[in-house]
Amino acid sequence: MKIWLSELRHSVAAVLSLAVISCGIYPAAVWILAQGLFPAKANGSLVMRSGAILGSRLIGQGFAESKYFHPRPSAAGQGYDASSSGGRNLGPTSKKLVDAVRQCIADYRAENNLSPDTIVPADAVTASASGLDPHISLKNALLQTPRVARVRGLDEKAVRKLVETYTEGRDLGILGEPRVNVLMLNLALDGTLK
């Protein structure tokens, strides 16, 4: 009995004291340092225009109009809901998955004026893991370029140049994949970034 009581005392004391350190002092210290050193990033890398928040450069946003580059299909909430992240979680032999991708391919070919046997980039027709993927592949962006240029009455070369401007390379030259940030590219097209 005595040993149980002493273990109980140690346990309660340890839980409370370690909680103060690792759940109070530690996150507060990180918070203060983060807000001091990287305030914009610690607060969500938000894109602002005259006081209004347009989005976050890290979080994807839905675009359906043909004058914009389109992001990947999203399973977050009703689509790009940044308060409800998540993937579609359909397996490789799921009928729902195959049907959704088939529909997506048809739409993608139609809106971009592609022939029915055009091979479509995988990222354009599959849902991301987070549902908030801010990026598309360069291949995907270049297939959409003629459409965006046409609808906006712009020179295709100029749009292509803009795509390249908003293409991020591999980190340190080797890590990850090259990618295009859709929100930033569309904002640049609208001229809102200036």
Partner: peptide, 20 residues
């Protein structure tokens, strides 16, 4: 199954993955 629909096989399986 997705390749048969016209998805680029060179990209691998991108369902549930992030581009970056």
């Amino acid at each position: 199954r997705l390749h048969a629909l016209g998805v680029d096989p060179a990209d691998g399986n991108m369902e549930g993955k992030e581009v970056r």
